[in-house]
Design a protein around this nucleic acid. Structure first.
Lengths: 339, 339
DNA sequence: CTGAAAGCGCTAACAT
DNA sequence: ATGTTAGCGCTTTCAG
């Protein structure tokens, strides 16, 4: 492992010049820049990150805090963020908040404070004011996905709007009896997502002159199994069942499709089903959905972080950036049965 | 952000003593240890990782290299490894090899060489000899999951054995016409996993006096959709269809269950289906499976790493450690139809 | 058991 | 455009 002075010696310049040439900070003549790069690569020199960090105060690393890792949405965002960071020369240090409160506390009170990250990316985490404060105290760029988070730059889809669109799609097909499988309100990790999606659903109905019926709403836990159970209950009464179901996540929508089948109902013949997510499996199930694009969200968040880390690279960005969603119509939705 | 000398001053000792007291290296009298800890926490002192790393050569960080992030197996391992690392005071830096070759090269030639990690954990990655060499040159502990990897400590399930067990379960129920949905052989990222699982399947059949028929084997891509298509083909001919299907992954097995339904076949009445994985959704599908436990695998790998990082903590471990699997019998397997 | 002091390998003023 | 040099904030001999 050669050091910077070996490179300097070989290139016939000072270590300062090597540092400048390799990092791109400060001016170096084109010719010496080339010499230095050649010397470095011929020696296989790679800068020591701790030494560089200690001297410069920058780490070329960003911390990503996630509530879960092995769920489609989070791991997809992670994938997008990771590859975007790599392209920018940054590492990604992952802080999972799975374990208990102790683990969570140690992340905020110890791990994130070690001066190991230049910025932090927080995925759909409802932070306590103490946690938020300790992040803000770092005086480092923070961006949240799924926000909004007070005082933090965030990206998020418009949960009310997306639910509105989904419900309107169903209304547009002629459905009047539309059920919803929502989120459990205790699901706090996602910023009022359950509440907002329900609000969008109800607003769409009311706008169409339909009073939402509590009998048509059932909360579930965002999983296939939860969706299956809720759909089974909602579709169970042949006399008074909805002709369409809007599920607040694709996994629940998939569970609903399976439940409908098991009840002997055809989708979309007897019941239409729409979800939210654009889950990787939604195509297989022929599910109509409002797709969000988690990988792009991750990449987008990284862009914002990079802009803040390298001022002058772009305009300052506003406080909460709405993220695009896209209605993908597949074969799970159609006009209601003739009756 | 107070420094170590602020703590030293407040505790009335030297910085050296603070360092020793906080890190646990070197002896400090119980009483001063307590004073130092109190001083540190009252000031909110947290060691600067770059400074500590530069001085000690240790980073308290491990690099994890993964081929994919958003797949159940990998994200589960990651979850287990992450929380185990956290408990040990280590950070986890994630290197995803999703992007193209350039990205991959930069990980091995640059990112991993920055002296940022004390060890590396490689998940089911078939490394080129050059990549392996550059890892070995780091002279740091490496452990692989899914191995074996020449010269590296690895953990892996016995792919031949697990396929053998799955097939034997089917044989034990009385099946003789057993099909398999295997892996595409081009799926190189997993060490010969497709080949090994097929070998176990064939060995079990031969031991039972059955010559495996190529017409009963179809490769797929480990996804639900792939399993669906393969199962549709395998079960398509009512005259000569297998009475049982062994899928090399749970996702493919789930696809098979859906395919069987769509063909009007009852599971397990007409056809039994078994998978490998213990996927989070396998319970929902009533799938009989050979469960591996990716989270535990991640935690286990971390244990080994910690043992190597803190010598004397436990015995040196052998070269390839077999991982436990467990047959979970649910409702997708039963004796073959009476005929 | 504790303190003094010499670095760890780089970066960033400050000169030139 | 490039060189000189003083740290960055710790850890770790080496003494005592």
């Amino acid at each position: 492992m050669p050091g910077i002075d070996a490179v300097a010696a070989l290139a016939g310049v000072s270590t300062a010049t090597v540092s400048r040439a390799l990092s791109g900070n400060g001016h170096v003549s084109p010719s010496t820049r080339v010499r230095v790069h050649e010397a470095a690569s011929s020696l296989g020199y790679v800068v020591s990150s701790p030494a560089s960090s200690l001297a410069s105060g920058r780490t070329k690393n960003v911390g990503v805090v996630v509530p879960f890792i092995s769920r489609w949405f989070y791991s997809s965002v992670l994938e997008g963020a990771g590859s975007a960071l790599l392209k920018n020369g940054y590492d990604l240090t992952l802080y999972g908040l799975t374990g208990g409160d102790d683990e969570r506390r140690s992340v905020f009170e110890h791990f994130l404070l070690r001066k190991r990250v230049d910025a932090v990316l927080a995925l759909t985490i409802e932070l306590t004011s103490g946690e938020l404060q300790s992040l803000l105290d770092l005086k480092k760029p923070i961006v949240g996905i799924g926000g909004p988070l007070a005082g933090v730059q965030t990206l998020s889809i418009d949960d009310v709007g997306v639910a509105l669109l989904a419900t309107e799609h169903l209304l547009g097909l002629g459905h009047r009896r539309i059920g919803m499988i929502g989120g459990e309100s205790g699901f706090e990790l996602d910023f009022h997502l359950p509440t907002n999606r329900r609000a969008g659903y109800e607003r769409a109905l009311r706008t169409a002159g339909i009073e939402p019926s509590p009998r048509f709403f059932l909360p579930a836990d965002f999983t296939i199994r939860g969706g299956y159970q809720a759909a089974t209950a909602l579709l169970g009464d042949p006399a008074a069942r909805p002709t369409a179901l809007f599920a607040a996540s694709d996994e629940m929508a998939m569970g609903s499709i399976l439940a409908a089948r098991d009840l002997g109902l055809s989708v979309p013949g007897d019941v239409s089903i729409i979800g939210i997510d654009g889950h990787e499996h939604s195509g297989f199930f022929g599910l109509t959905t409002l797709a969000q694009f988690p990988e792009r969200q991750g990449a987008h968040a990284v862009e914002i972080l990079m802009d803040q880390l390298h001022p002058g690279r772009r305009d300052p960005t506003p406080t909460n950036i709405p993220l695009p969603v896209e209605l993908i119509v597949r074969t799970s939705t159609a006009p209601p049965p003739a009756r």
